[in-house]
Amino acid sequence: MSPRERVASGRRLRMPRGVSVGVSVGLVAVPLVVAVLGPLLPYDARPGLPYSPEGVLGTDGLGRDVLGLLLVGGRSALGMAIGAVVLAYLIGGLIGLTAASTRHRWLDEGMMRPLDVLLPLPSLLVISVVAVGWRASAIAITVAVAMVNVPTVARLVRAAALDAASGPVVEALRMQRESWFTIQLGYVGRSVLGPVAADLGTRITLAVFLVASVNFLGLGLSPTAPDWAVSVSRNREGLLLQPWSVLAPALLLVSFTLGFNLLADRLVHRSRRLVESAR
């Protein structure tokens, strides 16, 4: 390729930004694999003295093996966050799609207006209250995290779906007598997918943060739970004595959120480019 040509197509060449997809996926995959497969591993965690260097990663403040804790602590840390986002999308997505596709204005307004009112509720506040009310219940925290995300998800899905559903494409498809399913899933659904995928990354990060913050504050799971965020909180005085007891769970959390952030960033760029090229 000649230098001049490179200048001409420079915009496209530079687009693969920063870190490659492989790294992002790897960052997400490592904690995910640990969380999913960890509890299944036949790892023999032997208790020892507090903050001792015994074992692969030493022990924590209660003398528990850090690696053993890591292997079982991911399910709650990531599971609650992912569960909350899935739940938020099930409820919020359903509300958004229904509001966008209905021909009855009252139904649309009736579903979206209450959510507008809920938007300014401080999320950590709601979750804290719920978490304390049903102390140590992972399900309650998951539901609470999902609930604070429902209004934004519903608005996003509604806006994206309405954009697609109100355009002439849907009319053209109706003119061709395409079935309701083909139109809703094949076209409207696919149009919503782009913004949703981009949002999913940041939303999962946010959910991980919320769940972890509640647990860190001691308002969520029991202080002896093996959860990664709880571990960071419990062992923070021991950071200098036995760094891995804090850094290992922290790194797994950060790796997960960082990977998702990078993927989301890429998706945002891709969907924007799609829109631009369509103009």
Partner: peptide, 29 residues
């Protein structure tokens, strides 16, 4: 009864080739 749009660009799905979208009429109708 068929209708041809004035705002054509908006009446095609960005993600599918044009010929396939055109052909669907004969398939469905």
């Amino acid at each position: 009864v068929q209708y041809v749009w004035q705002e054509v660009r908006g009446s095609f799905d960005e993600r599918r080739p044009v010929d396939q979208q055109v052909a669907r009429t004969a398939q469905r109708l």
